Amino acid sequence: MKTFEHQTRTRLGYFVYLLVDPRTGAIFYVGKGAKNRPFDHFRATKGEGSKAEMIRRIRADKLEPEVHVLRHGLSSSEIAEDVEAAVIDAIGLENLTNSCRGKGVEKGRATVTELNQRFCSRPVSINTIKEPLMKIWINQTYSPTMNAQELYDATRQYWCNVGKDKRTPDADGALMYPTVVALVGNVVVMAYRVQAWFSAGSTLSTRKWSGDPNRWEFVGNALPDHRLVGKRLVDDNGNSIRGNAQGYGYLN
């Protein structure tokens, strides 16, 4: 695998690059960095996810992935992060082997409906909600180009430290938190009724999982008519209720 010559590295500065499948010309990964960062990926080992698996498949055909530099001479890592995230959004996360959308997703690709929901939809104070809910933030894995199945899989997988009491039905067969709301920022993009929890990677999915089996995923049904879908969750002062880029919490 060729790398950048010393003089090239000094001229590139910060840059955004693409990994390309030479068999099809398809971009399968978008990254940002400096120096010889793109070539770090080619030291892939077993169990490093879908990007490493794609590299192994290309090499099985006696070829090497191509590195294309999309933008170079960027003045800071922060600018490179913005360009990287915009390119991921343009291609669609579901069409890449990247694990997340990158930095600044709150400013990223969104439909008119989503933007109107974010800025104009009716706020709902969490203190008025009496229903037990599991809140799951999917900021990093959400894409407006997702279909319904991809949105469902991004919401239900792959969560660590979901307590046994949260996953196991009581004596009457009821779960402590039977309803999950998927949040992008503070907007509920979908709700689901949970049927059961399973070990990560053990149910049929559009996503590939080769990681820790001690994480968890649920199966359930979409609730597109749930009263919170399309609403903004706020506190009593009208401030947005936001979680981490990716994570979960409970209400009631």
Rank of each mutant, 00 (worst) to 15 (best):
K107A: 14
D170Q: 00
Y248A: 06
K208I: 14
R118V: 03
A196W: 00
Y248N: 06
A200K: 06
K231W: 07
C100G: 14
R23Q: 11
N239L: 11
R56W: 07
A171D: 14
I91P: 03
I91W: 01
M54V: 01
R11Q: 13
H72K: 08
R56M: 08
Y177A: 01
D236P: 04
V194C: 10
F42E: 04
T145R: 15
T10D: 09
F28Q: 11
V184H: 11
Y142S: 07
V181Y: 01
Q246V: 05
H226Y: 11
K51R: 15
G92I: 07
T203N: 04
D82P: 00
S210N: 15
V181K: 03
V184T: 12
K107Q: 13
V162H: 11
E78A: 14
A196K: 05
M54C: 03
T10R: 13
T206I: 06
A86C: 14
V112P: 00
E84H: 04
G49N: 03
V105F: 12
V188E: 02
K208M: 12
T97G: 03
Y14Q: 04
L12W: 07
L251G: 08
D89M: 07
Y158E: 04
F198I: 06
A44I: 06
G185H: 11
K166T: 07
F39S: 01
E5L: 13
P178Q: 02
G33D: 11
L133C: 08
D40V: 12
V105E: 05
T45I: 14
S143N: 13
G230P: 05
P38E: 07
N239W: 09
R101P: 02
D170Y: 00
A245I: 05
V124D: 03
N36E: 06
E64T: 14
E94G: 12
G25I: 11
N98D: 02
L63T: 00
K32V: 01
I55D: 02
G185W: 10
P144M: 08
L223T: 09
N36S: 04
E66Y: 10
V188W: 08
H72E: 13
W209H: 15
S240W: 10
L63Y: 03
N221R: 12
E81D: 08
R118A: 04
R101L: 08
V194R: 12
M146H: 15
L233Y: 00
G247C: 06
V181F: 01
V16C: 11
Q117C: 12
K35P: 02
G243D: 03
G211V: 05
K135N: 09
T179M: 08
A191T: 14
C120S: 12
I55Y: 07
V16E: 09
I88L: 01
V87A: 10
N186H: 15
